[in-house]
Design a protein around this nucleic acid. Structure first.
Length: 582
DNA sequence: CGGCAATACTG
DNA sequence: CAGTAT
DNA sequence: GCCG
């Protein structure tokens, strides 16, 4: 199946997400999603959260001097923060020297620079000048950028204990000083930088890495976003990730997870689902493409510098990213989530057989819970099944369980007729550890057995008690069964099972179509479309003639015995199923 | 601005 | 046909 | 909501 299907793959529609962090302002100006194109003209992404400044407390920094350590704080973000600091009554120093006459009050380091990197940078630049370093640290606080954002947001100097790494650095210096006193002192592991810039650690020239990464995308038009990072990049990124795992977690800042932008992705995904559930399919699709671009970005996104490099991220989503980076949350999303109607929509739309229209209708009629439906609504047969197994269908199963289910079907098929070939597609084929349903494709090389197997098969599976409910069964060009099954084992859950039986010569296109992900399939079909071709579950056609988007001439179907041959005919490099998991 | 994958089933 | 499904 |  298509993994991204609705909320199926997501967390449950839990009552109210855990609040990230109490935020000073929790306006619900946008409590309901804003569909109207009017409203604000098109703001420059970023300052949104600061715009509503009160006239009074403008000089929260009160003449204090701030220095930004350039390492890993992108130029753009540094400038932005600097401007804000000055706006709020602070001064920005552009150099860091030990005996400076202008005493520094705050030294701001990036949130994700590892402590040991900071130490090394200090050692390299001020090596052995322990005295002065300690003096500097007596006057100035070394803080994380996150803290500064928080201050700007709340318009006051907030508690910096979590972001303040002074004590840590002092201890480090004392330790180094002690070592230096000892006769057999080990040499510094890094050659001191004579460079006047205080800290440019050799392992953090990430800007360059990024450019090469971005320019490394293959030139495939819309297929671009289907390709992964070139492998050679992997090691570097892995090393970086490990390092940044080390960082002092700024308040509410660190999100564990394998992707450096997991935090951003999570929030945008919520928005995507909400939009889709509300029926704004294409807005949701736009979010999906943006998220895909972010997911592939190897480094933490900190500012416009990086956002601008992301394909499919325009001004609107960019501003959301900035908001998330700066404040850790997204007002629009929070607003939607706390909206009764939205919650009910999410609940209803997750039921098989219920889409946005029906959900909308029910919400409008005042229904909010599944119990409401049970009592007051006439359900279609499909919806009745959906409701009956609502909770079970939200859960995913292990690959192992998929295999057990498939085994039963295969054995049953073989007991009817031998020679069928099988392939489990969907998220299973893409290698997912957990699968939402089972998409089993089968066919027969004799070119005719596929026509007659389905009904007897389903009959037998019912007799066995393996199938518990049917959604539908059709005998079109591709025979399909959509239903519900349950393993006999104690404690097994009801699972969605789709059996698809194409003729032998349409096997490859069918497998490709049923392997997903949904976004991959849409992208590759879009690509085919743009090349004057047409790709469906049935075939890849060339010389398709379309007038106003409508197919006028079907074109000529190509022989595509394998998935590879489909990519080849499209002029695309082959992607294994695991590489189509977008 | 228009287009955004391409089909099949239900009622 | 609209709505939902993949 | 983004792209051409």
């Amino acid at each position: 199946m298509y993994t991204q299907r609705k909320l199926r793959t997501s967390k449950r529609i839990a009552p109210a997400e855990p609040k990230k962090k109490e935020q000073a302002e929790d306006t619900d100006e946008d409590a309901t999603l804003n569909h109207s194109p009017k409203k604000k003209p098109r703001e420059v992404p970023s300052k949104k959260t600061f715009d509503k400044s009160q006239p009074d407390d403008k000089d929260i920094f009160n003449g204090k001097t701030v220095y930004f350590v350039p390492v890993e704080i992108p130029q753009a973000r540094r400038n932005l923060l600097a401007r804000r600091v000055e706006e709020f009554g602070g001064k920005v120093a552009d150099e860091l020297h030990l005996g400076g006459k202008t005493p520094l009050d705050y030294i701001v380091v990036d949130d994700r620079v590892a402590l040991d990197t900071i130490c090394r940078a200090m050692d390299n630049n001020f090596h052995d000048n322990f005295e002065k370093m300690l003096q500097l640290l007596d006057k100035a606080s070394v803080v994380r950028a996150q803290w500064l954002s928080q201050c700007l947001l709340e318009r006051k100097i907030v508690d910096d204990s979590e972001a303040n790494i002074n004590e840590f650095l002092k201890n480090h210096i004392r330790a180094m000083a002690n070592k230096a006193d000892q006769p057999s002192r080990s040499p510094l592991p890094f050659s001191p930088l004579r460079d006047s810039s205080p800290s440019r650690d050799e392992s953090y020239h990430s800007d360059d890495d990024r450019k090469s990464y971005v320019s490394n995308f293959s030139d495939l038009g819309d297929m671009e976003d289907l390709h992964d990072v070139p492998g050679s990049q992997g090691d570097v990124d892995a090393a970086k990730l490990q390092k940044s795992n080390f960082f002092l977690s700024p308040a509410g800042g660190s999100r564990s997870g394998t992707n450096p932008n997991a935090h951003i992705i999570e929030q945008l995904e919520e928005m995507m689902k909400t939009y889709r559930n509300m029926g704004d399919e294409f807005r949701g699709y736009a979010y999906a493409r943006a998220i895909s671009a972010i997911r592939k970005f190897p480094d933490p996104i900190l500012g416009m510098e990086q956002i601008k490099q992301l394909k499919n991220v325009g001004p609107r989503i960019a501003s959301h990213i900035v908001e998330i980076v700066e404040t850790g949350h997204m007002e629009k999303k929070d607003g939607a989530e706390s909206n009764e109607a939205t919650k009910a929509m999410n609940l209803f739309v997750n039921m098989h057989g219920v889409g946005t229209k029906t959900a909308q209708k029910w919400v409008q009629m005042g229904y909010r819970t599944l119990d409401d439906l049970k009592e007051k609504v006439k359900l279609t047969p499909e919806q009745a099944v959906g409701l009956k197994y609502y909770d079970e269908f939200q859960e995913k199963m292990t690959r192992r369980e998929v295999e057990e289910i498939v085994r039963i079907v295969e054995d049953t098929v073989d007991s009817i007729r031998s020679g069928f070939i099988f392939k489990v597609c969907g998220s299973y084929l893409r290698g997912r550890e957990m699968c939402g349903d089972v998409d089993l494709l089968m066919t027969h090389s004799d070119g005719h057995s596929h026509n007659t197997i389905l009904k007897p098969l389903v009959g037998k599976l019912h007799e066995m008690g393996f199938l518990t409910d049917d959604l539908w069964l059709t005998e079109g060009r591709h025979k399909k069964y959509f239903g519900v099954c349950k393993l006999f084992k104690e404690g097994s859950k009801h699972r969605r099972l789709d059996i698809i039986i194409p003729p032998y010569n349409e096997w490859a296109t069918c497998v490709l179509g049923w392997s997903g992900s949904m976004y991959f399939v849409r992208s590759i079909r879009d690509y085919a479309h743009k090349k004057g071709m047409s790709l469906t579950d049935y075939s890849l056609n060339i010389n398709v003639v379309r007038v106003n988007g409508e197919k006028v001439n079907e074109g000529i179907p190509l022989e595509t015995p394998t998935e590879e041959s489909i990519f080849e005919a499209l002029g695309l490099p082959y992607l294994r199923p695991e590489e189509r998991d977008h």
